[in-house]
């Protein structure tokens, strides 16, 4: 075996051109005289050429970004300090521009796929918040504000003389609807911020009434109050058995209920009338500090409870006579 090793090594040196002088002459002489040795030399030359071709193809595959089987992995282990794999550094030659781009330009790194997924989810959540909640919510609020500020009384009702209510004493027709802010006009928003729009009661008209007030005269201090005594300050004007006292101003609003409510709501100086049109002739009168509404010849007692109440027709004949007497 030792001789075989030496013989092959000698042939290697000959093929590399490393032999010279006497050694080279002896080698050539042996080739000429020993055909088997000459054949061995040629065989070795052919095999070496094949080894070179394999190595060359391997290196070319590296340059082309192809991983030759087995070799690269071992090289990577041998050179532990190397950071990048050859495949990462050298793609195909024709993709040269991409190589330069990889070196000098920053590009998103999608190797960390979970970060990309998290970013997409976050963006989706943000879009949902903006377009699915915030903007619709804002639109709804804007719509509600608009409905409040633009809820104007119908102009024909507010300006035509026929539409003026039949009031007892010179109603001062002041349209203050634009400056009023009534809780009834606020929308009934569904909780949770959804986009359901609730229709509101609609205020048709409002005005200020100076309501006359009367007081029943008690027998004490006056033997007969059947006659009217006009004079004095006016605050104690006597009409039959009644006397006129200082009235008050009442703000009257005409509302259209979306649920068909028929009734009223009376607080101290504010009266809201439902299911009653501004053009209908109504009048108001205080009798013994009780407010009465007259409509179509009928009187209705209005309780200042501050709650929604239905119209209650007054059937007391004596009371009606007293109301009718002035």
């Amino acid at each position: 075996m030792k001789s075989d090793i030496d013989r092959i090594y000698l042939i290697d040196r000959f093929l590399k051109g490393e032999l010279s002088g006497l050694t080279l002459d002896e080698f050539k002489s042996r080739m000429r005289t020993n055909s088997e040795f000459a054949l061995e030399v040629e065989s070795q030359r052919a095999i070496i050429e094949g080894i070179k071709l394999a190595r060359k193809q391997h290196l070319i595959s590296i340059l082309n970004g192809e991983k030759a089987p087995g070799i690269i992995a071992h090289v990577e282990q041998s050179f532990e300090n190397t950071e990048k794999t050859i495949e990462q550094v050298i793609p195909n030659f024709k993709e040269k521009e991409q190589i330069e781009t990889k070196e000098y330009k920053l590009k998103p790194n999608f190797n960390d796929w979970y970060l990309s997924v998290a970013a997409v989810l976050l963006a989706g959540l943000l879009l949902y918040f903006v377009f699915g909640y915030y903007i619709p919510h804002q639109k709804l609020e804007m719509a509600n504000i608009d409905s409040t500020t633009t809820a104007k009384p119908e102009e024909n009702l507010a300006t035509t003389p026929e539409s003026k209510p039949d009031v007892a004493v010179n109603p001062s027709l002041k349209d203050t609807s634009k400056t009023e802010n009534d809780s009834l006009e606020k929308p009934l928003l569904a909780q949770g911020g959804d986009s359901m729009k609730v229709e509101n009661d609609k205020k048709l008209f409002q005005t200020m009434y100076s309501v006359a007030a009367f007081e029943t005269i008690t027998p004490e201090g006056s033997d007969n109050n059947s006659n009217v005594s006009i004079g004095g300050t006016g605050n104690d004007l006597k009409v039959n058995n009644l006397r006129k006292v200082k009235g008050s101003t009442v703000k009257v609003e005409y509302w259209q209920s979306v649920v068909g409510f028929k009734g009223y709501k009376l607080s101290n100086t504010k009266l809201q009338l439902f299911d009653m049109k501004p053009e209908e002739k109504v009048s108001l009168k205080y009798l013994d500090k009780q407010l009465y509404l007259k409509k179509n010849g009928s009187y209705y007692k209005l309780n200042a409870s501050g709650n929604f109440e239905s119209y209650q027709k007054e059937n007391n004949i004596e009371l009606i006579k007293s109301l009718e007497s002035n």
Binding site: L39, E42, A46, G50, I51, L53, A54, Q57, P69, I71
Partner: peptide, 25 residues
């Protein structure tokens, strides 16, 4: 003129185990 087809020889080189292949290369 070579005795063997170089391409075929190179194929056999690639069939060698890694140590032999690298060593010869």
């Amino acid at each position: 003129m070579l005795m063997y087809d170089t391409k075929i020889v190179s194929d056999y080189v690639n069939k060698l185990d890694e140590t032999c292949r690298r060593l010869l290369m």
